[in-house]
């Protein structure tokens, strides 16, 4: 179980790193937004998954998954708002 958790954790960390690299290296705002959402949803997702498999209680696991779902909703809507604003401005 611990090995699985560790692997998932490393995967999550990798996606966070990828997101940061995308944030720094991508040429324009829209592609930066794109890189970011994909990366941080997956990153947080893997980390949450890693913690869920080792978590002792059901409530903790439930709370972790709730946090991930909320983060999904939040980041996708944030990116929608920002992208819409960017496009409107041209």
């Amino acid at each position: 179980m611990e090995i699985l958790s560790g692997t998932l954790c490393l995967l999550g960390a990798f996606f966070f790193m990828a997101g940061t690299v995308g944030l720094i290296r991508f040429p324009d705002s829209l592609s930066r937004i794109h890189a970011l959402t994909k990366a941080d949803n997956l990153g947080l997702g893997f980390i949450v998954l890693a913690l869920v498999v080792t978590s002792q209680s059901l409530t903790v696991a439930f709370k972790l998954i709730l946090i991930w779902l909320l983060a999904l909703v939040a980041s996708s809507s944030i990116c929608f708002f920002l992208a819409r604003k960017l496009i409107h401005r041209g």
């Binding site: 966070f16 990366a39 941080d40 949803n41 990153g43 947080l44 980390i47 946090i67 983060a71 980041s75």
Partner: peptide, 9 residues
């Protein structure tokens, strides 16, 4: 926004 998610992690 990225900071926020990373911070949560």
């Amino acid at each position: 926004q990225l900071f926020g998610t990373t911070g949560v992690a």
